[in-house]
Design a protein around this nucleic acid. Structure first.
Lengths: 207, 207
DNA sequence: CACAGAATGGATAGGGCAATCCATTCCGTT
DNA sequence: AACGGAATGGATTGCCCTATCCATTCTGTG
């Protein structure tokens, strides 16, 4: 579900499949090697297409990268629909899931969206906008959980669920970055545990 | 104070000045445009040196980038020596300082070290190691503050100050990343306020 | 002052990579 | 079956950028 889609180019089924294959290949390569070190030739080979196909479906490399950003946002957000952000148990299950996922990658790659943010923010304004949009959608899912929590009276009335959701997402991003750099899941664990602990304590105090 | 310095090349005063000029120029450019979009030619022009000088002082571009990482770590950590991490007022003053600093840059650039981490982690193992080292030093200053706080009895005995310091740093990094991507200081404020609120509440509860 | 090594200048090679171009083939529609 | 547009193939262009090379000028030391 791409939020920013300007040109409704006519695409046959086969075309959509090819396009998707390109995006998938690009997403994998970019996740593993970063934007700058992923060449069009790399993507071309990995997706098993010709270079003209790449430029048939995408105007240029930045356009492909934007498609990857949207794709990663879709994947990431979709993969978390199973978690319940409106209970402490749900939040803790989410935390365990995220930590396990990092361990599986040996702490490589960081956040599929966040790491793109750091790479694009100062060099690709449009790409940055797409990342911001992805974060916004992600934030929304956390927000709705916390709002529900508050509606049930399990969160202090003077707590702003939206601000708390933003803080939670920030802690997650920072935890992932530190984990990626240190190749150790401790930072991610510490960051999420701390924020969840705060949520727990906000079920009674004031903030 | 570079922690990793293998080759003690003989340098005259003039040489050191030139080298420093190169690192300063590179640091500024990289902060503003990222590693990949900063060319040796850019640095050469900004530092007003010849290309042979660049390769006289640095083996290659990655080596220059490592020097920049160390330089940014020194700068960042040095610039925070004035803050007292052992009191809530100190932490809040630090928070205000960081937020103000981001506002001054119009939320551009993100964290001088953290943003480098995201760019180097998967493509430059040595660079990543330098970033990790920088974080380690940064962490240490926060740790000592929180330990002192605990020693004064202002922090619950069953709180681990080192883990809390790590969480604080993670929240900061995530806040900076989101702030950079959204071009809005709210994420940084939310992240730091949340963590400081937790610290405040850990002056009485259990964790 | 003479010598060695450091510092500087500038030109250039050489590789990598984004993007273009011209065909050719496939596919749906009438 | 014929037509138009989509999809594909692969060669090629042209630029950007890292790194090297050789020559020349400083600077400190004995």
């Amino acid at each position: 579900m791409t939020t920013i889609s300007p040109s409704p180019r006519p695409l046959t089924r086969k075309g959509q499949e090819t396009r998707q294959r390109i995006v998938d290949a690009a997403a994998g390569l970019i996740f593993r090697q970063g934007v700058a070190h992923t060449t069009i030739e790399d993507v071309r080979a990995a997706a098993d297409v010709s270079s003209s196909q790449l430029y048939h479906y995408f105007d240029d490399k930045p356009a492909l990268v934007r498609a990857v950003v949207d794709h990663q946002a879709d994947t990431m957000i979709g993969g978390q629909e199973t978690f319940d952000f409106s209970t402490l148990e749900g939040l803790r299950a989410w935390r365990d899931f995220l930590v396990a996922a990092q361990r599986e990658h040996d702490c490589n790659g960081g956040c599929p969206i966040g790491s793109l943010g750091g790479q694009l923010a100062e060099t690709d304004p449009e790409g940055r906008a797409h990342v911001a949009e992805g974060f916004k959608r992600w934030e929304a899912t956390i927000q709705s959980g916390l709002r529900e929590m508050q509606a049930r009276g399990e969160l202090t009335p003077d707590t702003d669920p939206d601000t708390l959701a933003l803080a939670l997402l920030a802690a997650l991003q920072g935890g992932l970055l530190l984990t990626q750099v240190k190749r150790d899941t401790k930072p991610l664990e510490a960051a999420l545990d701390a924020m969840i602990e705060l949520v727990a304590r906000l079920s009674g105090g004031s903030w």
